[in-house]
């Protein structure tokens, strides 16, 4: 499964997922109004310390900031050019610390555990007569569809290239959608053929549990 999870057994990996999520929310809310350079510097240093305590390769995970580098630079420049550069520094410090803390939770929590931790949020679905199983099933379906979509697109691109010589075109999006939607219909039928998203009401004791 594609995931940002960094396998390991550090103290942060061992904390329960739900506790980590709550701590993150509390810290984020507390840090948001802070404008003091020294407090934020200390927070940033603590965060980096936490990363390095993850063990080998821990500190490398700070790379999560890289795709946001340009954006952070622009924000700093906008502050520096039109106002106070010190304000820019504080803003970047705060954003960086918050992003890194959130990322710390992500890389030390398996997707399964994260899912498990937030499942209670879906309990209200059953009041509406919907199965709380549905979000989990939907997540699995997305993970199954994404690679299939990419392969539908690449075979379509090949067919296009074989007759046009051109590599790709936005005009492929329409036919791509038609083919991909037909594929989704097949999956919907397959789901219904095996009892649908809700499953069968009662537990079937004649079949469960499976033993050798």
């Amino acid at each position: 499964m594609i995931s940002l999870y960094l396998p390991g057994a550090s103290w942060c990996h061992r904390l329960p997922a739900r506790l980590k999520l709550i701590l993150l929310a509390v810290v984020s809310m507390a840090v948001f109004p802070v404008q003091d350079f020294w407090i934020l510097s200390a927070l940033l240093a603590l965060t980096l310390l936490a990363y390095s305590s993850l063990g080998k390769g821990g500190l490398q995970q700070v790379k999560a900031l890289r795709p946001m580098g340009a954006m952070l630079a622009i924000i700093f420049l906008l502050h520096a050019v039109t106002g106070d550069w010190r304000e820019g520094v504080v803003t970047i410090e705060r954003l960086t610390a918050l992003i890194l803390l959130a990322n710390l939770v992500t890389i030390t929590t398996r997707m399964d555990d994260m899912m498990e931790a937030v499942m209670p949020l879906f309990a209200p679905l059953s009041w509406l007569g919907l199965s709380p199983r549905k979000p989990a099933l939907a997540v699995t379906l997305v993970l199954r569809f994404a690679p299939v979509l990419l392969s539908v697109y690449s075979s379509l691109r090949e067919a296009y290239q074989s007759r046009s010589g051109k590599r790709t075109s936005w005009r492929l999006m329409g036919p791509f959608m038609l083919q991909a939607l037909a594929m989704a219909d097949n999956v919907a039928e397959a789901l219904t053929a095996r009892g649908g998203a809700e499953g069968f009401g009662a537990r079937d004791t004649s079949v469960l549990p499976v033993r050798n």
């Binding site: 499953g199 069968f200 537990r203 079937d204 469960l208 549990p209 499976v210």
Partner: peptide, 15 residues
């Protein structure tokens, strides 16, 4: 198929 018949997630995976 097993969860459809009422198995829990762990039961279904081991099954």
């Amino acid at each position: 198929g097993l969860t459809q018949l009422g198995a829990s997630k762990t039961e279904a995976v081991s099954g």
